[in-house]
Computed example of a mutant assay.
Amino acid sequence: MTHSLRFLSLLSLLGLLATGQSRAQSGPYASTQARTAALVTTPAAAPVPPMVPAAPAISPDSVFINPEVRPQFVGGDKAFKAYLAKSIRYPQQALQRHVSGRVLVNFVLNAQGKVTDAHVISGPGSGLNDEALRLVWLMPPWEPARVNGQPVRVACTVPISFTTER
């Protein structure tokens, strides 16, 4: 009886191996020859269009740091500097104390190019931080950032320099 049990076990094992081999030839790991043979024997197969990866959906809540197309102040850097020069009001407190320096303001531009979530990262204080924030909040809309051709929200940081020598 043990010989017949061994024989049946061996026969079952061979059956599993044969099944696995036929599945391997028809599955995703099939050899090139097996796939080619299947293509040759298939009558009038329709041509398969090339696979084009679909652009991933962009969540409206996403905030990009490095988009494909960066946002731009309308008119470029020159227009941005002109806006600052025209709109800046040097705080009296900073003038009296001869405080100057650079304020870094971080903000998010929404998909329409408008400023949201502005805050000061660093600055000398004495009213300069508040003035820099005021300037950022009052900026006209920018040309928005783009990913896959769609306007998106993007995080921005701009330096605003203040000097008492005016």
Rank of each mutant, 00 (worst) to 15 (best):
M1C: 11
T2C: 05
H3L: 07
H3W: 10
R6M: 09
S9E: 05
L10M: 12
L11T: 06
A18I: 08
T19Q: 11
T19K: 04
G20C: 13
G20Q: 03
R23K: 02
Q25D: 09
S26Q: 07
Y29C: 02
S31Q: 10
T32D: 08
T32L: 02
Q33M: 03
Q33D: 15
Q33T: 15
A34G: 09
R35F: 03
T36F: 14
A37K: 08
L39N: 02
V40F: 03
P43C: 10
P43F: 04
P43T: 12
P43S: 11
P43K: 03
P43G: 01
A46D: 00
P47F: 00
P47G: 15
P47H: 05
V48C: 05
P49E: 14
P50T: 13
M51S: 02
M51W: 14
P53S: 04
A54E: 06
A54R: 03
A55F: 11
P56D: 00
I58W: 15
I58Y: 10
F64V: 13
F64K: 00
P71E: 13
V74K: 07
G75M: 12
G76F: 01
G76P: 09
D77G: 05
A79Y: 09
F80R: 02
F80I: 05
F80N: 02
F80C: 00
A82N: 03
L84A: 10
L84H: 00
K86D: 13
S87Y: 05
I88C: 13
R89C: 03
Y90K: 00
Q92S: 01
Q93K: 13
A94F: 02
H98K: 04
H98G: 03
S100T: 01
S100Y: 14
V103P: 09
V103Y: 14
L104W: 14
N106L: 08
N110G: 15
Q112G: 02
G113T: 12
D117C: 10
D117S: 05
V120M: 02
S122H: 01
G125N: 04
E131C: 11
E131Y: 15
A132E: 12
V136A: 05
V136G: 12
W137Y: 05
W137H: 15
A145N: 06
A145T: 07
R146D: 06
V147W: 04
V147C: 13
N148E: 12
N148F: 15
G149H: 10
G149Y: 02
V154Y: 03
A155Y: 13
A155H: 14
C156P: 03
T157L: 08
I160R: 00
S161Y: 13
S161R: 15
S161C: 14
S161M: 11
T164N: 06
E165G: 06
E165A: 14
